[in-house]
Computed example of a mutant assay.
Amino acid sequence: NQDLRSFLGTKYTKVPMMHRLGVYRHYEDMENMVQVLELGLWEGKASMVLLLPFHVESLARLDRLLTPDRVEKWLEKLNSTSMALSLPRTKISSMVNLQKQLAALGLVDAWNETSADFSATSSLGQGKLHLGAVLHWTSLELAPESGSKDGMHEDEDVQKPKIFYADHSFIILVRDSSTGALLMIGL
């Protein structure tokens, strides 16, 4: 179910908040004052990890904590826990030009008009072709789903649930389940 609730980002706004009871993988890092919650995506092929500070704060502190080792330790400590979730319904999207990152990996000639030649990949017959841009577009929507697939276990017996009430800024990580590769980070 959902209703309008206050959410504090850079200012207070009213947002549709979704509520669910169920058994989810969860960990509370008392030292770093952050809750870690994992939700399955796409029938277990990926997972979404939410990092919620205990208190309303800028995400700069939490962003500094995000090292591969720390994230891996958080994931190792997740336990199936009865949870009462409240999450804002939202859509996150971003587009990034990957030229700088690809050049750092050694792909430099592909951008050069004189040395690049991708003409074999085109039927236009326009002579030499080069890359102008490589863009990566990502979108993720937090919205109510029908059914309880993807790691949502609403039909299980929920006893004394812990609260995960995301009414302030948090970080979202999306990971591939088979490789552990990080697919997306959202704030």
Results as ranks from 00 to 15, higher is better:
Y24W: 05
Y24S: 08
Y24G: 06
Y24P: 04
Y24F: 15
R25F: 05
R25A: 10
H26A: 06
H26K: 12
H26C: 12
Y27K: 03
Y27V: 04
Y27H: 15
Y27G: 02
Y27P: 02
Y27W: 12
Y27Q: 01
Y27L: 03
E28A: 10
E28R: 12
E28N: 07
E28I: 07
E28M: 05
E28P: 00
D29I: 04
D29Q: 03
D29K: 01
D29V: 02
D29F: 00
D29T: 06
D29A: 00
D29C: 01
M30K: 14
M30F: 05
M30W: 08
M30D: 14
M30E: 15
E31T: 14
E31F: 03
E31R: 10
E31P: 02
E31D: 14
E31Y: 04
N32S: 08
N32A: 07
N32W: 03
N32R: 15
N32I: 01
N32L: 10
N32M: 09
M33D: 09
M33I: 03
M33F: 00
M33Y: 00
M33R: 14
M33V: 06
M33T: 13
V34N: 04
V34W: 03
V34I: 14
Q35P: 02
Q35T: 09
Q35V: 09
V36G: 02
V36C: 00
V36Q: 00
V36W: 01
L37I: 08
L37R: 05
L37A: 06
E38I: 01
E38P: 01
E38M: 06
L39Q: 13
L39W: 03
G40L: 08
G40M: 10
G40Q: 10
L41K: 10
L41W: 06
L41V: 12
L41N: 12
W42N: 15
W42C: 13
W42H: 14
W42K: 15
W42A: 15
W42G: 11
W42F: 08
E43T: 06
E43A: 05
E43V: 04
G44I: 09
G44E: 09
K45R: 14
K45L: 10
K45G: 12
K45M: 09
A46V: 05
A46H: 11
A46Y: 06
S47D: 05
S47N: 11
S47V: 05
S47W: 01
S47H: 06
M48E: 06
M48I: 09
M48L: 14
M48F: 06
V49M: 05
V49N: 02
V49Y: 02
V49Q: 04
L50F: 07
L50C: 08
L50D: 08
L50M: 14
L50T: 13
L50V: 15
L50W: 01
L51D: 03
L51W: 02
L51K: 01
L52I: 09
L52E: 11
L52C: 07
L52D: 10
L52A: 06
P53N: 06
P53S: 08
P53K: 08
P53V: 13
P53M: 09
F54R: 09
F54E: 09
F54C: 07
F54D: 15
H55M: 13
H55F: 08
H55P: 00
H55A: 12
V56M: 08
V56W: 01
V56R: 11
E57A: 12
E57N: 05
S58N: 13
S58L: 09
S58D: 15
S58I: 01
S58W: 01
L59K: 03
L59F: 05
A60L: 10
A60H: 07
A60Q: 13
A60G: 02
